[in-house]
Simulated scan of single mutants.
Amino acid sequence: MKVCTDACVLGAYANVAGDRILDIGTGTGLLALMAAQRNAEASIDAVEIDANAFEQATGNVTASPFADRVQLWKGRIQEFSGNGTLFDRILTNPPFYTNHLRSPDVAVNRALHTDELPVEKLITAVSRLLQPDGQWWVLLPPYETLKLTEMAQKASLYPFQQLALKHHANKPVFRFITGFSYQKNSLSEETLDIYETDGRTYTTAFRDLLRDFYLIF
């Protein structure tokens, strides 16, 4: 599976403080492994429904220095109990296409389309698994972020921090990384340009954020 730049930004930007972290829809295991690298004390649970992705994540976790702290679970988040544990931090890079041309690849559809995990069920799962003082960090395009925020607030989950991602300064925002909690606070907003306006040179801010993860820096 491909590792997307925006997912790497989520893994580097989200607050991963706490003892227990949950990665919903781990895919390759990227977010779980980044959380383990950033927080040396945390235990991380990572849930994945797709068999091939789960197998790949298992290989990646096993080959990493963090295998003793990352537990992988195959199945739907709706059926994940966490053994009764509530999590300090939840990370999610969810599918977001609803009415969009389908791929002939079932795994691609699961990764990109909301059929397997509608937003309502995602919010219900997060509400069930998040500590009262915990944080949920999610990556979505602008329109989907707006709709998710509207629905999350009905479940008493409120945005408190948001990073707008742009390919470069002259391009529109293409993703938002949003932190939610049960506390109502004013929203802190930031913007990150991945490239300089030439579209090829990484910005200093991007380099600084990803330096511990990108071997090219």
Rank of each mutant, 00 (worst) to 15 (best):
L192R: 10
H113F: 14
F80D: 08
D88V: 03
Y13N: 00
Y182A: 14
S64Y: 04
K171P: 08
A46L: 00
P172T: 09
T92K: 03
H168D: 10
G11K: 01
W136F: 12
K2Y: 14
K184L: 00
P118K: 01
S186G: 10
N39R: 12
K74S: 12
C4E: 12
I216Q: 13
L101E: 15
A42S: 13
K121M: 14
G84C: 01
I24R: 00
N99F: 09
S103D: 12
Y13I: 00
Y214L: 13
N52V: 10
R110A: 12
Q37C: 09
L157D: 04
V173D: 04
L86M: 09
E189T: 10
T62Y: 11
S188A: 14
V47Y: 00
G179L: 00
I49H: 06
D6G: 07
D105W: 05
V70F: 01
D23L: 02
F176V: 00
E55Y: 10
S103Q: 06
R69Q: 06
A67C: 09
T58Q: 05
K154R: 15
A164F: 13
Q183T: 11
V61H: 02
S64A: 08
P172S: 12
M34C: 03
C8A: 14
N170T: 12
A67W: 03
D105N: 15
V173Q: 06
Q71E: 11
P94L: 06
Q153G: 06
H168K: 06
G82L: 03
F96D: 09
F54G: 01
V108F: 11
I177P: 04
A57E: 00
V47E: 00
E48P: 03
T114N: 09
C4G: 15
H100T: 13
A111P: 08
M151T: 08
F176Q: 09
D6L: 04
F54D: 00
L146R: 14
E55K: 15
Q135H: 13
T149V: 04
V119C: 14
Q153L: 05
S43R: 15
A36Q: 07
L122F: 06
F217D: 13
A46N: 05
L86W: 05
A125Y: 08
N99Y: 09
S43Y: 11
G75T: 02
L210F: 07
G179K: 00
G75D: 03
L140R: 04
K171V: 07
T98F: 09
L31V: 01
K121S: 15
V9D: 09
W73M: 07
F217T: 13
D50V: 01
V126Y: 01
S81Y: 04
W137M: 06
W137V: 05
Y214F: 11
I77P: 04
R76H: 13
V9E: 07
R211P: 01
L210N: 08
L139V: 05
F80M: 03
Q131H: 13
N185M: 13
S103L: 02
N99K: 14
S127M: 04
S181P: 01
E55R: 14
R110D: 05
S188D: 12
L86Q: 13
L10I: 04
V126W: 02
T124M: 11
F96V: 09
Q131P: 03
T203F: 01
